[in-house]
């Protein structure tokens, strides 16, 4: 097996696994940059995956080939709405952000499985007929070598994730909205005195994270699992959280971390069919993202610092 063969297997697979992580990690960035810790990313992915699969199964007759794409939009909306619960609890009701996030995770798994059993009378949905399938990107696929590795047998969603990451970077760092979002997360009182509505910005941050988390879950369900059960989303949300931290709360960092963690995940699955890699016990690949994140936080791989006001409540008038 030549290096070329290996790359043409590993690269598309990495991007496939990376896409949901990237979307969700970007969601985490919007929330944390506004100062709200979002442990609930896992739950938001669950909601997104559930919504996408149910929508896909129900409306496949109406939308045909376009169903997965419409389902993405619906999952974003539902994810955004669901995250309002987290926003209300942790911003308005001054709940501990982590506790509220835990509640989001518990509620998401409970509610979605309850609904699955109610609708389908069993613990899992059927398999969707229209999912994201492998495609060759037109024009780009004809570039020699690069085209074969990156643009053949791949998925549109992977490239969407990369584009969204660049957009997120632009929004967070190059627009007035992004500046306000970050200022609210770094020093809410200073932002408030400058006339920025702290509560509004934080609500927006959380809702955007809900939409992107829902998107991540929908992509995962429609490109990797193709149905919804209790095991559909099992830790991807927390891995996205890890990618966000490993990427130092920066959209492009999260993109890189997402791709790197996607590589680890995909090798742990397809590695047994590849030379060299099959010697590595898969456990090392499975735990690599988490261990690396701990090391990054500790400062062994460049220090990762959270936004200053992340996890705190802003109470007007108190110092």
């Amino acid at each position: 097996m030549s290096l070329m063969d290996i790359l043409t297997i590993v690269v598309p697979s990495t991007l496939l696994w990376a896409a949901p992580l990237i979307f969700t990690a970007l969601g985490g960035i919007f929330s944390e940059r506004s100062g709200v810790v979002n442990i609930g990313l896992e739950g938001l992915m669950v909601v997104g995956a559930f919504t996408a699969i149910v929508f896909n199964l129900t409306f496949v007759g109406t939308f045909g080939n376009a169903t997965p794409w419409v389902a993405l939009v619906v999952a974003m909306i539902v994810g955004g709405v669901f995250s309002i619960l987290h926003a209300v609890a942790s911003i308005t009701f001054r709940a501990d952000h982590t506790v509220s996030g835990v509640a989001i995770n518990l509620l998401a798994t409970g509610l979605t499985l309850f609904l699955v059993k109610m609708i389908y009378d069993k613990g899992e949905t059927g398999i969707i007929k229209e999912s994201f399938s492998k495609i060759d990107i037109p024009i780009l696929k004809d570039i020699p070598i690069i085209g074969e590795i990156f643009f053949q047998n791949t998925y549109w969603t992977s490239f969407l994730a990369i584009i969204v990451a660049v957009i997120a970077w632009y929004v967070v760092f190059k627009t007035p909205f992004g500046l306000r979002l970050r200022s609210v997360g770094e020093h809410p009182m200073a932002a408030d005195t400058m006339g920025i509505n702290v509560t509004k910005m934080r609500y927006l941050g959380v809702i955007i994270s809900g939409a992107l988390g829902g998107l991540g879950g929908a992509v995962y369900a429609q490109s990797i699992t193709s149905n919804f059960s209790h095991a559909t989303i099992s830790g991807q949300g927390f891995m996205a959280l890890a990618a966000m931290i490993f990427g130092k709360w920066h959209p492009l960092g999260a993109l890189g971390a997402g791709i790197f963690f996607g590589l680890a995940q995909s090798i742990s699955i397809i590695g047994s069919s590849l030379p060299f890699l099959k010697e590595i016990p898969s456990v090392y690949l499975l735990i690599a993202p988490y261990v690396l994140t701990i090391l990054a936080l500790t400062g062994f791989i460049g220090r990762a610092d959270a936004p200053k006001a992340s996890g705190t409540h802003y109470i007007k008038g108190s110092r």
């Binding site: 518990l106 509620l107 409970g110 509610l111 499985l113």
Partner: peptide, 8 residues
Amino acid sequence: ELVNIIIA
């Protein structure tokens, strides 16, 4: 699962 919802 209703109980999980209530717990959440």
